[in-house]
Amino acid sequence: ASVAVIAAGTQGNIFATSALRSMRFLQILRMVRMDRRGGTWKLLGSVVYAHSKELITAWYIGFLVLIFASFLVYLAEKDANSDFSSYADSLWWGTITLTTIGYGDKTPHTWLGRVLAAGFALLGISFFALPAGILGSGFALKVQEQHRQKHFEKRRMPAANLIQAAWRLYSTDMSRAYLTATWYYYDSILPSFRELALLFEHVQRARNGGLRPLEVRRAPVPDGAPSRYPPVATCHRPGSTSFCPGESSRMGIKDRIRMGSSQRRTGPSKQHLAPPTMPTSPSSEQVGEATSPTKVQKSWSFNDRTRFRASLRLKPRTSAEDAPSEEVAEEKSYQCELTVDDIMPAVKTVIRSIRILKFLVAKRKFKETLRPYDVKDVIEQYSAGHLDMLGRIKSLQTRVDQIVGRGPGDRKAREKGDKGPSDAEVVDEISMMGRVVKVEKQVQSIEHKLDLLLGFYSRCLRSGTSASLGAVQVPLFDPDITSDYHSPVDHEDISVSAQTLSISRSVSTNMD
């Protein structure tokens, strides 16, 4: 405001104040949320940038038409019409005319000016109207692209899951042992070998009828009888010197917790746990005396209480009078009846079946994303299906024409109403129809010849004498029936064969 007042002088105070007050009108834009329509302006900018070359070309040609039209109309009207006294007036008329506004304040009066105005109007309006069409088509394409992008975003994750499931299904095939990355992934998420051994031990116990592997080994086996189970490696608790092959000598807290839970599941009659010990102070733990958990001091820290809870689970003690015997301790020893080589084939089979199920689920979810969402998608899918159906029908028609023997030239002739090819031409065609016709002709010829021969033979049998045999009239074959199959017997006289037959029969009768 200060700059405006200084620039306008003393009389500019009122002007500056009114100008600043008129800017209050811009507050109405906040009512229509114009300040939060950044996406709309961004869309407009992207459309203009995408079609910038077309817009520049249309505007450039339109500007050239405007300059030439205004100049030529000015030359034609400057002497006869006072409205075109300057080139600026003519340029104003050209702008209003070519933009199809047409105020009518300035019009050419001479015939030359009117002809020039009409010609440049028809030429220039087309170029001035091009930017509107370019922007409209650009907006339509952009909206369609955003629509497809939205659908693509919805299909991206199911497609990625389907590709991942397909690759993992491919890589978990037993015949592709060189693909090891997927197996490394499952090695990292699978439970430890100790848990798998416990699982298979329970399965084997159920197969043995509820007997433990130790009891199965204690059962008497006759001499020479084959053992029911192959000899396997035996594993004891981590306190002993022997372990399962492939295990580490260090046992983690999870393994100890699972070991304690498995020992508690063996039965309360074979294992008696004394009350857990509780320390009397955060600094020292008295293991010899058993106290109640309700006497825990409230001033303990979080670490002390955590250690106390761990001691409740991981440090059970047995009383002296209830101490288990050596046999019970041997039964409680952890027996590992299986090795990694025995378990891994079954584990890989389970993983393979899981990968198949996940692949089928991913495939079903991806197919669900291909379903249409709204009416536009339904129409688009219907149009695509219609085009596909037309293509299939056209391909089927082409194959039928190839089989029947109607080529493209014959199809055009039928469409024009011309006469089709004759039967002889159809026979000569190298097509399925021509071959079928040729075979039918040959079969008819053979059938006719057989009928003639059978009739001749029956007449010979009825006559009974050589004289009557020679008097029999043998009809000749019709050459038209034989089609294109020409037998060497067709052109010979059958009477010669009949005479030869009669001579042979007379000779045979004389010999008798």
Rank of each mutant, 00 (worst) to 15 (best):
A165G: 05
A166V: 05
L169Q: 01
Y170S: 11
T172A: 08
S175N: 04
R176P: 05
A181S: 15
A181T: 11
T182S: 05
W183R: 12
Y184C: 08
D187N: 02
S188I: 05
I189L: 11
L190F: 07
S192F: 06
F193S: 01
L199M: 15
E201D: 05
E201G: 12
E201A: 11
E201Q: 06
E201K: 01
V203A: 02
Q204E: 01
R207S: 05
L211I: 13
L211R: 07
L214P: 10
V216L: 03
A219E: 00
A219G: 08
P222T: 08
P226A: 05
R228S: 07
Y229C: 06
Y229S: 02
P230S: 05
P231T: 08
V232L: 12
V232I: 02
T234I: 04
H236L: 10
P238A: 11
G239S: 07
G239C: 06
S240C: 11
S240N: 03
T241I: 10
T241N: 01
S242T: 10
F243Y: 05
F243S: 11
F243V: 03
G246V: 02
S248T: 09
S249R: 10
R250L: 10
I253N: 02
K254I: 15
D255V: 10
R256C: 12
R256L: 06
I257N: 14
R258C: 15
G260V: 07
S261T: 11
Q263H: 13
R264G: 02
R264W: 11
T266P: 10
G267C: 12
P268A: 15
S269C: 14
K270T: 10
Q271L: 10
Q271R: 14
H272N: 10
H272R: 10
L273Q: 02
A274E: 02
A274V: 04
P276Q: 15
T277K: 14
M278V: 08
M278R: 07
T280I: 01
S281C: 03
P282Q: 04
S284T: 10
E285A: 08
E289K: 13
A290D: 01
A290T: 14
T291I: 03
T291P: 11
P293L: 09
P293A: 14
K295N: 15
V296L: 04
K298Q: 05
K298M: 12
S299N: 06
W300S: 15
S301C: 02
S301I: 14
N303I: 06
R305P: 15
R307S: 08
F308C: 08
A310G: 14
S311P: 14
S311T: 10
L312Q: 07
L314F: 15
K315R: 14
S319Y: 05
A320S: 10
E321Q: 12
P324S: 14
S325A: 06
E326V: 03
E326D: 14
E326A: 10
E327A: 13
E331Q: 12
E331K: 08
K332T: 12
K332E: 11
L338P: 09
V340E: 06
V340M: 07
D341E: 11
D341N: 11
D341G: 15
D342V: 05
M344V: 14
M344K: 08
A346S: 07
T349S: 13
T349P: 03
T349A: 12
V350G: 14
V350L: 01
I351L: 09
R352L: 03
I356V: 06
I356L: 03
I356T: 00
L357I: 05
L357F: 00
K358E: 01
K358R: 10
K358Q: 02
L360M: 06
V361G: 01
K363N: 05
K363R: 05
F366V: 01
K367R: 06
Y373H: 01
K376Q: 04
K376M: 13
K376T: 05
V378D: 04
I379F: 04
E380V: 03
E380A: 09
E380Q: 03
Q381R: 13
S383A: 06
A384E: 10
G385V: 09
L387M: 04
D388N: 13
G391R: 15
G391A: 12
T398S: 14
Q402K: 07
Q402H: 14
I403M: 13
G405R: 06
R406W: 09
G407A: 06
R411K: 01
R411G: 01
E415A: 11
K416Q: 01
D418G: 06
K419N: 14
P421R: 12
D423G: 15
D423E: 03
E425A: 13
E425K: 01
E425Q: 05
D428Y: 09
D428E: 02
I430N: 02
S431N: 08
S431R: 04
M433T: 06
G434E: 04
R435L: 07
V437D: 02
V439E: 01
E440Q: 11
E440D: 00
K441M: 09
K441T: 04
Q444L: 05
S445F: 01
S445T: 04
S445Y: 05
S445P: 01
E447D: 06
H448N: 00
L453V: 01
L453Q: 02
L454M: 08
F456L: 13
F456V: 08
Y457H: 01
Y457F: 14
Y457N: 06
S458L: 12
R462H: 08
R462L: 10
S466W: 12
S466A: 15
A467G: 08
S468T: 12
G470V: 02
G470C: 13
V472G: 15
Q473R: 10
V474L: 13
F477Y: 12
F477I: 11
D478G: 09
P479R: 13
T482A: 13
T482I: 15
S483C: 12
Y485S: 12
S487C: 12
V489M: 04
V489E: 11
H491P: 03
E492K: 15
I494L: 15
S495C: 07
S495F: 13
S497T: 11
A498G: 15
Q499R: 15
T500A: 08
T500P: 15
L501F: 12
L501V: 12
S502G: 11
S504Y: 10
S506P: 15
S506L: 09
S506W: 09
S508I: 15
N510I: 10
